[in-house]
Amino acid sequence: MLARTADNLYWLSRYVERAESLARILDVALRLATLPSAYAGTSNEWESAIDIAVCRDAFFRHYDVANQANVTQFIIAGPDNPSSIRACIEVARQNARAVRTAITTEMWEILNDAWNEMQRLRFQSFTSKDLTKFLAFVREVSLRFDGAAYRTMLRTDHYWFQRLGMLLERADNTARLLDVKYHVVLPETEPVGGGLDYFQWSALLRAVSALNSFHLIYRGGIKPWLVADFLILKPEQPRSLISSYETLNRVLDLLAERYGRQGPSQRLARQTYSQLQNMDIDTLFQTGLHEFLEQFIADNNRLGLAINDQYLQ
């Protein structure tokens, strides 16, 4: 398989996943920002949205204030934002077009329709209602795309590279989301008798579609350290770091088997995975959640580079 084809497949699904994450980030910010300040605390939700989406510098080059209008506009279709939702869909479609025959018709049609829809929408005149509808649309594109890939692609290296991109992006997003919000999941910030941060925790869970499933795994109320445990160490949670790495490992092993050769990607993924397997949440908090997440994001990036070097060029 051509290295460029693998590259296109990998980035194609990374960008679709990224578009979905951005939509979720906005969803959560929107929900928290509408709460009375007594419930949501004092932090500026729109600024954290900017931080999770890692576009602080670019944003403040264009705007003075991080408020709903500016942030949603910037993240959805901002000028000079190469990672806006619109840009993600656009780049995903470009990649798909370049490997039109390597993906299935179903996958192509979902992306092509989404792209056509984006051309049609007038983001400037969005009402809050339009915004909610739009964010649901973006999440649905990603769900349908993922479903189409899962249901229609041949299980060959084409499929595996498509998965790799999705999983790497997902791990990155979950880690960033946690990192920006890490102060609210630290045990010592738990106010006596529950309280202000409750909405922050549930918003975090909601951001990864995990609010209901949290209750299935942990009987009892939302505890901040359990939120961290859920999103980092629970293999049952498909957006957790450990679950992403479990699958990353399996996919990389399939590639190694098919090509008859192991490489740095396999080694790095295995390292990170076994680290996660041997970790418990208490130790994690002792070493420092923020430090751990920073390290994870760096390792995840390193794996991305290793995959690039090993397969994509």
Binding site: M1, L2, A3, R4, A6, D157, L255, R261, L312
Partner: peptide, 19 residues
Amino acid sequence: VEGRDLFVRSNVVYMRTTE
């Protein structure tokens, strides 16, 4: 392939693949 997928070494043409 596009041009950038190919390269020439010792007068032999190769394509860059995942393998």
